[in-house]
Structure formats: structure tokens, C-alpha cells
Nucleic acid binder design. Structure first.
Lengths: 198, 198
DNA sequence: TCAAGAATTGTCCCATTGGTCAATTTACAA
DNA sequence: TTGTAAATTGACCAATGGGACAATTCTTGA
């Protein structure tokens, strides 16, 4: 860490975002009251509204943070990837990182998604997430496929990832990480040109 | 129609399920109050609780009905399908039936999904939906692929369908029917053995 | 040591909502 | 026509939750 110590404001905000997201996992958006978030964070309700303008803003930021985790999981792997194929694998494996690809997190994510149509802020975040995913995929696929094929494949992959996350949230005890990854690899292997030995 | 006229109870119940689902499209689960449902159906709140034990039961049945529509859309097409390939097309096209594959319906569906982790009744309905989908897909794929390949392909297809529906709900102005179907066809063509001319 | 600002708490208020119930209206069979 | 059961309404209740705010405690720099 270079420079200043972390300001208390930032600490509290982070704690509360985290608490909000964890309550969301258990209770869903409707059940995630400010009171519960405060209690879960070990504080009083007043504190929550001291650090966040209102409930909306709190959960908006909780969503931002949760997404940032996934984004970093991808970025981390992407940094070590050399070939397009490796970049593709990085994107996919990042999206199924074992730290995050878990039912409870999928529950929270699902609750957030349910609000997207009526909360422009959440919609914007979603749009950013999808745009980044698409752009990442395209940059990995372009060297391997024609433009049109790359575009289609990118759409298929991201829909597939979303679909598998959705099922993780819905069908408790359904498809878990290993099987999801196996499905993704299976899909990709059939879509990419044969690998040239090295 | 053979036999009795439709009982008033059944008419009202249907009207209210329908109204509930339509309010759900606009307002989401939290915003879909009994009052709004009643008003939308042109009745008073009391009526709703006269025909349904409580809010839970109302929306549970609304979900059942909405799903039945999609199920019928598939069944209808399935009835006219002769070959396995046609059966597969029937399943897919049914799931993107233009009457139902629409953003507002996807919104409602998404709201319901957000509640699934905390409402066993909804979870059961989801489980049935998925089971039927999987079974339909398997019966179409088994004649064309090995058991293991059929299983994987079925999982991929259903995840893909879910993912595309999810995006329809989230990303307003995103992938619409035609493109979704094109993606699905593209996916399938690459996975099935070449079609024997006829 | 002390003043000033930040952090934190607990209380209060108002709107909303699911659900109950008695009263009223409507439909229908005898 | 009339009496009974069903349909429908509207008033009411208790609980809840988001948010405002004044009061209190804690930090910190001079």
C-alpha cells in the first residue's frame, strides 16, 4: 500500500457493502432490510443511512463490489495468458472461480437481476458487465475465427455462462463448478479450429 | 368443450392469475401488491384473498400458468414433429415462441426466479420445468448421439435457453427472437451429425 | 485539557401492506 | 316471490420498514 492509511469512511462503506451482499444471499432483495444489514455488520440502522443515501444506493454499490470480484478473478488470469486460447480459458475459468461460483452468491445475484428492469442504476451496471464480457471474449476469439463467427461464439459463450449461473442459483444441488467447466470446455473444443501442437 | 360450463370460481381464479402475472411484469415481486393486482383485474383487494389463500399462493399459481403456456407452445410443435431433428427444433422454437419470448414476460419470470431460493413452492415448479425440458431434449437427442454426448448437449441447450431468456429480461434492447433462434440453430448445427439428405 | 467535528445510537414518524371480518349485494333454486 | 348461499366490498388492524433527526459518545488536533 502506497500512501495514506485507509480512511474510516472507506472501511465502513466496505463493511456495509459486504454485509448487504451477505444478507442478500440469505434473504433476497425484499427481505434484506436495513435493520438486518446493520445487525449483520454489527452496527445500528442509523449507521447504514449515515454512509449511504438510501437503500437503493447501498445495494447498488453492493452489486458493484460483487461484480468487481468476478472482474478481478478474470483479470488476474488474463494477465498470465499469452495465446488467444489461453485468454479464452482465462475468461471462462474466471467466471467460474471457486471463490465466487457458489449457490449463495448466485442467489444474491439472482435477486439483483430481478430488480434490474426497474432500477436504472442496476441496469447500467449489468450493461457494463455484459459489455466487458463481450469485449473480452471478442478480443480472444478474433484471432481464431472470422468476425461473424467470433461474434456469434461470443454471444453463445456469455449466454452459456449466464445460463449456468442461473441454474446454480435456481436448482440447488444441480450443476456445480466442475461439471459447468466441463460443459464449457466441451462447447469450446467443438467450436475452435484444431489446436496446433506445440 | 365437452360438458359443464366453466364455473365462476375458475373464471375468477384465471383472471386473477393473469392479472397477477401482468402486474409482476411491470412491478416486480416486491412491487406487486394485492391492491394493484386487484385493481388491475378490476376488482377489490378482498376478492383476491377470497380466491387465494394468500399472496404466496396467488403468485405460485401465476407462475404455474405462465409456465403452462410455454409448455403448451412446445407440446403443440412436438405433436407435429416426426424425426428427432424435428423434435429438437420443436423444443427450441417452442421456447422462443413469439407470443411469450418478450421482455416484459422475461421480467416477470426473472422476478419469480429471484424468489425461488426462499420459496420451496416456486422451487418445486422450477424443478419440474427443468426436468421436463431435460427429458424432452434427451428423447430428441438420444437417437442422434451417444448417451454421454446427448446428456451434455441437453445441458448445454437448456443452459443456453435460460441464458438467452435471462438476457432478454436484463438487457432491454438486446438479443431478440430472431437472433436468439439463429444462435441456437448455429449451435445445434455444429453439434449434430450431418443431416442425411431427403 | 478542551473544543470541534465526526461517528454512532435510539427514537420517532409516516406510508405501506398482507390479511381479517362483518356487512352488503347478487344470483339462483324452490 | 323469496330465502339461502355465494360473491363482493370496504373498513379495519397489526406489523414492518425506510428514512429523519436529535442526542450522545468518540477522536483528534491545537
Amino acid at each position: 500500500m502506497a500512501g495514506k492509511l485507509t480512511k474510516l469512511v472507506d472501511i465502513r462503506r466496505k463493511e456495509l457493502r459486504q454485509a448487504a451482499f451477505e444478507v442478500l444471499q440469505r434473504e433476497g432483495m425484499a427481505g434484506a432490510t436495513l435493520e438486518k444489514v446493520a445487525t449483520h455488520a454489527g452496527a445500528s440502522k442509523g449507521i447504514v443511512l449515515h454512509y449511504f443515501r438510501n437503500k437503493q444506493e447501498l445495494f447498488e454499490q453492493a452489486m458493484r463490489e460483487a461484480n468487481a470480484n468476478l472482474r478481478d478473478a478474470v483479470a488476474e488470469r488474463l494477465r498470465q495468458a499469452k495465446t488467444p486460447r489461453e485468454r479464452l480459458a482465462a475468461i471462462i475459468e474466471g467466471n467460474f472461480d471457486e471463490r465466487f461460483y457458489q449457490p449463495s452468491i448466485a442467489h444474491a445475484w439472482l435477486s439483483l437481476c430481478g430488480e434490474v428492469p426497474r432500477e436504472p442504476q442496476l441496469a447500467r451496471i449489468q450493461a457494463v458487465i455484459h459489455a466487458r464480457m463481450h469485449s473480452n471474449l471478442l478480443s480472444a476469439l478474433k484471432p481464431m475465427l472470422s468476425d461473424e463467427e467470433a461474434r456469434q461464439t461470443a454471444h453463445l459463450i456469455s449466454a452459456l455462462i449466464d445460463g449456468l449461473w442461473l441454474r446454480l442459483g435456481l436448482h440447488s444441488g444441480g450443476i456445480l463448478r466442475d461439471e459447468a467447466l466441463a460443459l464449457m470446455r466441451d462447447f469450446i473444443d467443438r467450436r475452435l479450429p484444431a489446436e496446433t501442437g506445440g
